[in-house]
Design a binder for these strands. Structure first.
Lengths: 222, 222
DNA sequence: AACAATTATGAAAAATTTTTCATAATTCCC
DNA sequence: GGGAATTATGAAAAATTTTTCATAATTGTT
């Protein structure tokens, strides 16, 4: 996991970082609110551990600004306050969880992992190469914008993504996407592959769909 | 929200119930672990508030059994222990959150709502009436089978479901579904509503989409 | 290299979805 | 109840998607 620690108390921040590294994760420290927001524009984190009290924008402001910018990275608030109103409040301004100081490192890690687990299972996108398939909106998102997909193109791409790295025969593709046994007197599959390839290759430098002569198609990420 | 309170201390359970009802929710009490499991086989709840210490199976056992039965209803544990090991443990046996006693009612409610919100956003189907919209496959599932939806029908239905109970003006619908400001010299909205209504009403006895004359459309479940 | 089998592709045809149009039905308000 | 405004609807037109067709290009085999 890639963790951003936003905490102005140096000993706490560094002890957390040390423990995260030891547990096999990656962690960076931001010593105030502005630095935290700044880091987020540059690097993508899996989770943000955010102190409630910080110089240059406090946790609440930072939390709100993160959400307003459309960033949905899970946030866990670290609060020294026992004041319950703030805890309740935290969940309402877009934080995903909070931990009351003093805390044990085990508790912090368990909370972060729980929050990340929930977030990942709630995400309805599949990333591949430099593209991302939105499973709800049925389109591809790129750095440049949106690629619209027809229904058949979406179904085929999703099938490829669900089976990347394995060769899919025309028989399998036909059953899954057209719900009919493969028949050689149509070439809808080839035609659809062609159109999907075109959309992918016009928007990415990767060549995702390989042809395995005599066997089928193979989808690769890299 | 439909809430199951599993708590053996009568005053606590009943005070919680009273407060939930007052806040406009529905709540039932199970006074021990077995009763809790029993209730769950009969009624579907939105969230379970589970005391850690209970006669006839404690919170941990109940939590584990609920998950083993395939039930994914969000669970919030209520724990009198300050023992951190148990808190960490709670998240690992399938609970979604926990609250340490003593708690304020506001905190309990905020936690429950946060957990339910997260759960709902992680689910890829939206149930309404006797139908269910599959957000990935873009079709409706009924007891009798599948209703295919065109893209515009899906978008519109999802928009209705995301805003059920509130009147949506044609201006709002036009912006959201067609990405253009509403114009009275087209009637695509009416036409699409008509087609969607037809599919819904051919497959359900509910009349989901109400017309609010001069204001817009209102989607209702019941 | 030559041949057969397989895959790719542009363009046309067919099918479906989306939108428009003309008109009917309903609601609101006096 | 009558009239204006709003909404509903069937059918046609337009746009898009899906499939087919004819042919080109590529691959594996000998």
């Amino acid at each position: 996991m890639n963790i951003l620690i936003a905490e102005d108390e140096k000993p706490i921040a560094e002890s957390l970082k040390k423990n995260f590294l030891q547990a096999g994760h990656n962690a960076m420290i931001a010593f105030d609110g502005l630095e935290c927001l700044n880091q987020l524009t540059k690097i993508e984190f899996d989770v943000i551990l955010l102190d409630w009290r910080m110089p240059n924008k406090n946790g609440e402001e930072v939390c709100r600004e993160i959400r307003e910018s459309g960033n949905e990275t899970p946030i866990v608030l670290l609060t020294a306050l026992t004041d319950i109103k703030n805890k309740v409040h935290a969940l309402n301004i877009g934080a995903d969880d909070y931990i009351t100081k003093p805390f044990s490192f085990d508790e912090v890690l368990a909370r972060l992992q729980a929050v990340v687990r929930r977030y990942n299972s709630s995400v309805s996108k599949i990333d591949f190469g430099d593209l991302s398939l939105d499973l709800i909106k049925h389109h591809i998102e790129t750095n440049e914008g949106i690629i619209k997909l027809s229904e058949k193109e979406f179904d085929l791409l999703k099938y490829f993504l669900d089976n990347k790295g394995t060769v899919l025969s025309k028989e399998e593709i036909s059953m899954k996407i057209w719900q009919v046994p493969y028949s050689p007197n149509t070439n809808v599959i080839e035609a659809t592959v062609k159109n999907l390839r075109k959309k992918l290759e016009e928007n990415s430098s990767y060549k995702y769909i390989k042809t395995i002569y005599g066997e089928g198609y193979l989808f690769l990420d890299n």
